[in-house]
């Protein structure tokens, strides 16, 4: 590819060689099956869904969207989902930072990271079933609360907002924490040591050295965690009040598709869901660009 190029540069260059010079040869074609698969089963359905959402069962091309934003049972799902996803994500990210800063100094991180990977692996359905038992009126947590005398009757923690909130903490916190930890361990420790040697206190070192280096990673962590929390589904049905406080947008989309069999409406809701996610992520990345300028990486990362 490299040496023959020099020889052939002036004469008639065969198409094969010219393509190879641009990096297109038999090996490059190996990417095609996977690309065709993703285009066929990810891009095409998305475009199909978008087009379908403009072909409602009845009414004009915008009828689905008009219906969504006119019906409080539908449009309030956006607010309800945000009201769950935003506080949970803020909490998970804020708690993850100090813990990751400490755990980074630990020699044996593996035991902790292994324990934390368990809820991610088990998934939201199992966590929902576990929390139904654990947080329920006869569960261990309520027994502890009653024994301590914190309250004289069992505290209601399931089939409401707090049940879903806790399930999002149980599965979301490990995810956020592990992402944060991987960003923090990517920062060269000698930068902080240099700060310490020059007399910066712990708080100053965090604010002046670690935080600026960590900030871009934190924004990405926040975005990924938020998108996960925003698409909460099984625990909102099982642990929450799926007709009330925790009627999140994915429940509305599911019901449109599989209870009303209105795929056009379901696609419209899925598109609105995707749009809200993109909007929030774009806003966060935009904010980061506006407020933060500097090297994106932190030393060795």
């Amino acid at each position: 590819m490299r040496s023959e190029a020099g020889v052939l540069i002036s004469g008639q260059v065969p198409l094969r060689v010219r393509l190879a010079q641009r990096g297109l040869d038999g090996v490059t074609l190996l990417v095609l099956p996977a690309v065709l698969f993703i285009v066929g089963l990810f891009i095409y359905p998305f475009v199909y869904g978008l087009v379908l959402s403009f072909e409602p069962k009845e009414g004009g091309w915008l009828a689905n969207y008009a219906k969504f934003f006119a019906d409080p049972y539908l449009y309030t799902t956006i607010g309800k989902t945000l009201w769950l996803a935003v506080p949970v994500t803020v909490l998970n990210v804020l708690v993850s930072i100090p813990i990751a800063l400490r755990v980074r100094l630990m020699r044996r991180q593996r035991l902790l990271t292994t324990i934390l990977v368990v809820p991610i692996t088990l998934g939201t359905v199992l966590v929902a079933e576990g929390l139904l038992n654990y947080l329920g009126p006869r569960g261990w947590l309520n027994r502890v609360i009653l024994t301590i005398g914190f309250s004289d009757s069992p505290v209601r923690l399931i089939h409401n907002y707090w049940g879903v909130f806790m399930s999002l903490v149980i599965t979301g916190f490990p995810f956020t924490f592990l992402l944060t930890l991987s960003y923090i361990t990517g920062i060269d420790p000698s930068l902080e040591q240099a700060g310490a040697m020059l007399g910066a206190r712990a708080r100053q070192r965090f604010r002046e050295i670690m935080l600026p280096l960590l900030f871009p990673g934190l924004v990405i962590t926040f975005c990924l965690s938020f998108v996960q929390a925003f698409s909460v589904f099984p625990s909102a049905v099982l642990l929450g009040a799926p007709a009330g406080d925790t009627r999140v947008i994915s429940i509305a989309a599911y019901q449109a598709a599989f209870e009303d069999y209105d795929y056009s409406m379901a696609s419209a809701i899925a598109m609105i869901m995707a749009f809200v996610q993109v909007l929030i992520v774009a806003a966060l990345l935009g904010l980061q660009n506006a407020f933060y300028r500097g090297p994106a990486g932190g030393g060795k990362g």
Binding site: V39, F42, P45, F46, Q228, S231, Y254, S267, A270, Q277
Partner: peptide, 21 residues
């Protein structure tokens, strides 16, 4: 980007149009 998108978009969001297809 094409490879990253299915990992970044949550399954329930692309799952509904995919199930429809």
């Amino acid at each position: 980007l094409l490879i990253l998108l299915p990992l970044l978009v949550p399954p329930i969001t692309f799952g509904i149009p995919l199930a429809t297809v």
